[in-house]
Design a protein around this nucleic acid. Sequence first.
DNA 1: CTCGATGCAAACGGTTTGCATAATC
DNA 2: GATTATGCAAACCGTTTGCATCGAG
Lengths: 156, 156
Amino acid sequence: MLVSMHSKKSREEIAKVIREHGYRATPQRLAIYDALHKSGSHPTAQEVHQTVLERDPSVSLATVYKTLQLFVELGLAREMGFRDQIHYDPEVEYHVHLVCTSCGKIEDLHIDELESFISQIEDETEFEITGQRFDMYGLCSDCKREKRDISPPSLA
Amino acid sequence: MLVSMHSKKSREEIAKVIREHGYRATPQRLAIYDALHKSGSHPTAQEVHQTVLERDPSVSLATVYKTLQLFVELGLAREMGFRDQIHYDPEVEYHVHLVCTSCGKIEDLHIDELESFISQIEDETEFEITGQRFDMYGLCSDCKREKRDISPPSLA
DNA sequence: CTCGATGCAAACGGTTTGCATAATC
DNA sequence: GATTATGCAAACCGTTTGCATCGAG
């Protein structure tokens, strides 16, 4: 099981993908692609916007929203709706999310068996699978530790 | 693999669960519990509201929202954020969702191997799992059939 | 009788949209 | 130069909240 496996494409590759689909490779789009990868794990549109602003303070939030949608369409990102917000994931390969319900951190987990597990479902049902989302909710190692350290005294 | 396995509790059982947690078993709450089960698969709060209205036209949308939150807290339902809306699932056991990206239908799929798959992840990571969500996106059998019937002519 | 629950309407906040301007190809 | 993309601000819409009233325990 690998914990991370980010496959960031170069500026040129991204520009190529965008143009091949008939869209324009604007500086904003390239900057947003970079920001998506630099914004920590599974950022929201607003977080991506914050990151882009560091490089180019003129990029608008609306453009970030439109561009992230475009990336999803082009297969450069995946979107995952949570309770309040949509998070974007630059990792498009099948993988599992470990979502910490205490601190909100989301970790990726690549599992070898996942692909065969999924194709098994496809074989045994009449469902044609094109995408997947596998979230595990719970406590990450940090929050588990914190709980151990904090709880006993407060219970006493 | 079972396709459905709804474990609807009786009015009395629900009232008991609610009271045991220190809340009041109001007629609205009981009606909303029924509606949650009668509203088709994985309804939104608004869909549940529509269903409740058939029995009691005075129940407000705000109460439906508050009550569904309460059910999640009591372990009587699970919530799943999608792109635009939160959907509620009265089935709280581990299972897989088959989400049709064409018609929007969500089917439940109970898989024996799922539980061991999940505990395997828990064993191999330092993550303490308390919940899970496994969605498969794609085409359901109906939409697959429709696509077969419609597409060829339109491609000609 | 008390305190939690309801219903209403207003507020909230993430996301989308319309449109004039700017920039890609 | 034609047409798409951007930025701005307003609109949207699902969800939450404040508060007076109601009703469960």
